[in-house]
Deep mutational scan, measured.
Amino acid sequence: HSHMSHTQVIELERKFSHQKYLSAPERAHLAKNLKLTETQVKIWFQNRRYKTKRKQLSSEL
Protein backbone atom coordinates (compact mmCIF):
# COMPACT_ATOMS: atom_id res chain seq x y z
CA HIS A 1 0.00 0.00 0.00
CA SER A 2 1.62 3.22 -1.10
CA HIS A 3 1.12 6.51 0.66
CA MET A 4 -0.08 9.51 -1.29
CA SER A 5 1.31 12.94 -0.64
CA HIS A 6 -0.86 15.81 0.53
CA THR A 7 -0.40 17.47 -2.86
CA GLN A 8 -1.55 14.39 -4.74
CA VAL A 9 -4.66 14.09 -2.58
CA ILE A 10 -5.49 17.77 -3.11
CA GLU A 11 -5.25 17.30 -6.88
CA LEU A 12 -7.39 14.15 -6.73
CA GLU A 13 -9.98 15.95 -4.60
CA ARG A 14 -10.05 18.86 -7.01
CA LYS A 15 -10.59 16.56 -9.97
CA PHE A 16 -13.25 14.64 -8.04
CA SER A 17 -15.18 17.82 -7.27
CA HIS A 18 -15.53 18.37 -11.03
CA GLN A 19 -16.22 14.81 -12.05
CA LYS A 20 -16.98 11.67 -10.08
CA TYR A 21 -16.08 9.28 -12.89
CA LEU A 22 -12.97 9.29 -15.06
CA SER A 23 -12.58 7.69 -18.46
CA ALA A 24 -9.52 5.50 -18.98
CA PRO A 25 -7.59 8.24 -20.88
CA GLU A 26 -8.44 10.83 -18.21
CA ARG A 27 -7.31 8.44 -15.50
CA ALA A 28 -4.06 7.72 -17.35
CA HIS A 29 -3.43 11.43 -17.80
CA LEU A 30 -4.13 12.25 -14.15
CA ALA A 31 -1.98 9.36 -12.94
CA LYS A 32 0.90 10.52 -15.11
CA ASN A 33 0.59 14.11 -13.88
CA LEU A 34 0.55 13.03 -10.24
CA LYS A 35 3.20 10.31 -10.67
CA LEU A 36 0.74 7.68 -9.49
CA THR A 37 -0.32 4.44 -11.11
CA GLU A 38 -3.66 4.28 -12.91
CA THR A 39 -4.71 1.64 -10.39
CA GLN A 40 -4.04 4.02 -7.50
CA VAL A 41 -6.14 6.69 -9.15
CA LYS A 42 -8.93 4.23 -9.96
CA ILE A 43 -9.06 2.88 -6.41
CA TRP A 44 -8.91 6.36 -4.89
CA PHE A 45 -11.91 7.42 -6.98
CA GLN A 46 -13.82 4.26 -6.08
CA ASN A 47 -13.18 4.81 -2.39
CA ARG A 48 -14.01 8.48 -2.65
CA ARG A 49 -17.34 7.75 -4.37
CA TYR A 50 -18.13 5.17 -1.72
CA LYS A 51 -17.37 7.62 1.09
CA THR A 52 -19.55 10.29 -0.52
CA LYS A 53 -22.40 7.83 -0.95
CA ARG A 54 -22.16 6.72 2.68
CA LYS A 55 -22.20 10.30 3.90
CA GLN A 56 -25.33 11.04 1.88
CA LEU A 57 -27.03 7.95 3.27
CA SER A 58 -26.25 8.85 6.88
CA SER A 59 -27.37 12.45 6.43
CA GLU A 60 -30.74 11.25 5.17
CA LEU A 61 -31.42 9.28 8.34
Score class of each variant (00 low, 15 high):
residue 16 F to P: 02
residue 23 S to V: 01
residue 4 M to N: 01
residue 1 H to T: 11
residue 22 L to S: 00
residue 16 F to T: 02
residue 54 R to G: 12
residue 31 A to F: 02
residue 6 H to A: 12
residue 16 F to G: 03
residue 27 R to E: 05
residue 5 S to G: 04
residue 58 S to F: 10
residue 3 H to C: 15
residue 30 L to T: 01
residue 18 H to M: 14
residue 19 Q to A: 07
residue 22 L to C: 07
residue 61 L to R: 08
residue 43 I to K: 08
residue 34 L to G: 01
residue 43 I to Q: 08
residue 29 H to K: 14
residue 30 L to F: 05
residue 52 T to I: 08
residue 15 K to R: 15
residue 46 Q to W: 09
residue 9 V to K: 07
residue 4 M to V: 05
residue 44 W to A: 01
residue 39 T to K: 13
residue 17 S to F: 14
residue 24 A to N: 07
residue 4 M to P: 05
residue 21 Y to W: 12
residue 4 M to H: 02
residue 8 Q to V: 11
residue 48 R to V: 05
residue 60 E to N: 10
residue 54 R to C: 15
residue 37 T to D: 04
residue 36 L to N: 00
residue 19 Q to L: 10
residue 12 L to A: 01
residue 58 S to L: 12
residue 47 N to K: 12
residue 2 S to M: 11
residue 17 S to L: 11
residue 51 K to W: 12
residue 9 V to P: 01
residue 32 K to Q: 10
residue 15 K to C: 15
residue 55 K to R: 10
residue 39 T to P: 03
residue 25 P to R: 11
residue 42 K to S: 06
residue 6 H to K: 12
residue 36 L to T: 02
residue 55 K to P: 10
residue 49 R to D: 02
residue 6 H to L: 09
residue 9 V to N: 05
residue 36 L to W: 03
residue 57 L to K: 13
residue 13 E to L: 08
residue 40 Q to E: 08
residue 4 M to S: 01
residue 4 M to Y: 08
residue 55 K to Q: 12
residue 56 Q to W: 10
residue 44 W to R: 01
residue 50 Y to P: 04
residue 52 T to A: 15
residue 18 H to V: 11
residue 1 H to P: 08
residue 52 T to K: 08
residue 14 R to M: 08
residue 26 E to Q: 06
residue 29 H to C: 13
residue 42 K to I: 07
residue 56 Q to P: 10
residue 29 H to D: 11
residue 61 L to I: 13
residue 50 Y to I: 14
residue 60 E to R: 03
residue 60 E to M: 06
residue 47 N to Y: 12
residue 27 R to C: 07
residue 29 H to W: 10
residue 11 E to H: 05
residue 13 E to V: 06
residue 30 L to K: 00
residue 24 A to H: 08
residue 51 K to P: 09
residue 34 L to D: 01
residue 6 H to Y: 10
residue 15 K to H: 13
residue 45 F to S: 00
residue 13 E to T: 04
residue 36 L to D: 00
residue 19 Q to R: 10
residue 44 W to H: 00
residue 49 R to E: 03
residue 25 P to A: 15
residue 23 S to C: 05
residue 52 T to M: 11
residue 8 Q to S: 03
residue 6 H to V: 10
residue 49 R to F: 05
residue 37 T to Q: 03
residue 16 F to C: 07
residue 13 E to W: 06
residue 59 S to C: 15
residue 41 V to G: 00
residue 17 S to R: 14
residue 5 S to K: 02
residue 44 W to K: 00
residue 5 S to A: 04
residue 46 Q to C: 11
residue 20 K to W: 06
residue 10 I to K: 11
residue 53 K to V: 08
residue 50 Y to Q: 14
residue 27 R to Y: 12
residue 28 A to R: 11
residue 49 R to T: 01
residue 9 V to I: 13
residue 3 H to N: 11
residue 11 E to D: 03
residue 6 H to G: 05
residue 33 N to A: 15
residue 14 R to C: 13
residue 51 K to D: 10
residue 61 L to S: 14
residue 58 S to Y: 06
residue 46 Q to N: 07
residue 14 R to A: 09
residue 28 A to S: 07
residue 20 K to T: 05
residue 59 S to Y: 06
residue 20 K to E: 08
residue 6 H to E: 08
residue 18 H to E: 15
residue 50 Y to N: 14
residue 51 K to A: 13
residue 55 K to F: 07
residue 6 H to I: 13
residue 4 M to W: 05
residue 54 R to D: 12
residue 2 S to Q: 14
residue 29 H to Y: 09
residue 32 K to D: 06
residue 42 K to G: 05
residue 61 L to E: 14
residue 20 K to P: 12
residue 24 A to L: 09
residue 12 L to K: 01
residue 7 T to A: 15
residue 3 H to A: 09
residue 20 K to A: 08
residue 51 K to H: 12
residue 22 L to M: 04
residue 42 K to T: 06
residue 30 L to Y: 00
residue 28 A to F: 06
residue 33 N to K: 15
residue 41 V to H: 00
residue 55 K to G: 12
residue 21 Y to G: 02
residue 21 Y to F: 08
residue 45 F to V: 00
residue 61 L to N: 12
residue 35 K to C: 14
residue 15 K to L: 11
residue 52 T to W: 13
residue 25 P to G: 15
residue 12 L to T: 03
residue 18 H to Q: 09
residue 30 L to Q: 01
residue 48 R to L: 07
residue 53 K to N: 09
residue 40 Q to R: 02
residue 12 L to V: 01
residue 39 T to R: 13
residue 18 H to I: 11
residue 32 K to Y: 07
residue 7 T to D: 11
residue 29 H to I: 14
residue 35 K to Y: 08
residue 14 R to W: 06
residue 19 Q to I: 06
residue 45 F to R: 00
residue 34 L to R: 00
residue 37 T to V: 02
residue 25 P to D: 12
residue 46 Q to H: 07
residue 42 K to N: 06
residue 53 K to P: 09
residue 39 T to Y: 10
residue 1 H to E: 09
residue 60 E to G: 13
residue 25 P to N: 13
residue 3 H to K: 12
residue 19 Q to S: 10
residue 25 P to I: 14
residue 41 V to Y: 01
residue 22 L to N: 00
residue 16 F to S: 02
residue 22 L to P: 06
residue 61 L to Q: 10
residue 8 Q to T: 06
residue 37 T to I: 02
residue 30 L to N: 00
residue 41 V to Q: 00
residue 26 E to D: 06
residue 53 K to M: 09
residue 2 S to L: 13
residue 16 F to I: 02
residue 51 K to Q: 14
residue 16 F to M: 02
residue 3 H to L: 09
residue 24 A to D: 06
residue 38 E to R: 04
residue 55 K to V: 09
residue 20 K to Q: 13
residue 58 S to E: 14
residue 53 K to Q: 09
residue 28 A to Q: 10
residue 12 L to D: 02
residue 13 E to R: 05
residue 60 E to D: 14
